[in-house]
Deep mutational scan, measured.
Amino acid sequence: MIIKINGKYYKIKKIEKNPNGKYTITTENGKKYEFKNVKIFSEEELK
């Protein structure tokens, strides 16, 4: 799965839903981001 952050695309390693309704997304390079609204892309959609 792929996520778009600030115009760049990252591969997703893990998605966790937090009790506060936000999502914590861990990218393949180990960085964590927290979002309220998340749009996930499949690799097929990006081709």
Rank of each mutant, 00 (worst) to 15 (best):
N18S: 12
E45H: 10
I40F: 11
E44H: 10
S42T: 13
T24P: 00
K32W: 04
T27G: 04
E45F: 07
N29I: 03
I5H: 04
E43L: 02
M1N: 06
K39N: 10
L46N: 09
K14H: 15
I12E: 00
K32F: 06
I5N: 01
N6S: 08
G21Y: 01
K17S: 05
Y23H: 03
G30Q: 01
E43H: 04
K17A: 07
E34G: 03
F41V: 13
L46R: 07
T27Q: 01
E44G: 11
Y23R: 01
I25K: 00
F35R: 07
K39I: 13
T26Y: 13
Y9K: 04
K22S: 15
Y10S: 03
N20T: 06
N20L: 04
K17E: 06
E28M: 14
Y23N: 01
E16F: 07
S42L: 14
I5Y: 04
K36E: 15
N6E: 09
I3P: 00
T24R: 04
K36W: 14
N18C: 12
K22I: 15
G30L: 02
E16Q: 08
G21E: 02
G7I: 02
Y10F: 10
E43M: 02
Y33K: 02
N29V: 03
I40T: 06
E44C: 12
I12Q: 00
E34W: 07
I15Y: 03
N37T: 14
E28Y: 11
I2N: 05
T26W: 15
T27V: 12
K22F: 14
E34A: 04
G21I: 00
K8S: 07
K47N: 12
G7M: 05
K14N: 11
P19D: 11
G7T: 03
Y33N: 01
K22R: 14
I40C: 14
G21S: 02
K36T: 15
K47H: 12
F35S: 06
K14E: 12
N29Y: 08
K47L: 09
E43K: 03
N37G: 07
E43I: 03
E34I: 14
E44N: 10
I3Y: 02
I5K: 02
E45Q: 12
T24W: 08
K31L: 12
K47M: 09
E45G: 09
Y10C: 08
T26A: 01
N37I: 10
I12S: 00
N29L: 06
Y33I: 08
I3E: 00
L46W: 07
T27F: 15
E43T: 03
K36D: 15
V38D: 06
K32H: 07
K14R: 09
M1W: 15
E45T: 10
E28G: 05
E34D: 05
S42P: 08
E44K: 06
Y9V: 06
E44S: 09
K47Y: 03
K32R: 11
N6K: 11
K14P: 00
I25V: 14
K17G: 04
K36G: 13
E44F: 02
N18Q: 12
F35W: 04
Y9W: 14
Y33M: 06
K17P: 04
N29E: 12
Y33C: 09
I40N: 05
K22Q: 12
I12Y: 01
I25Y: 02
N18T: 09
T27L: 15
E44I: 08
P19N: 10
M1S: 07
I2M: 15
I3M: 07
I2V: 13
N37L: 05
L46D: 07
K11Y: 08
N37P: 03
I5Q: 01
N37W: 15
S42H: 11
Y9M: 07
T24S: 06
Y33E: 01
I25A: 02
F41W: 13
K17W: 09
P19H: 10
K31N: 10
K39G: 07
L46E: 06
T24Y: 10
E45Y: 05
K17T: 04
K36I: 12
I15D: 00
N37K: 12
G7D: 08
K11N: 06
E28Q: 12
K4I: 14
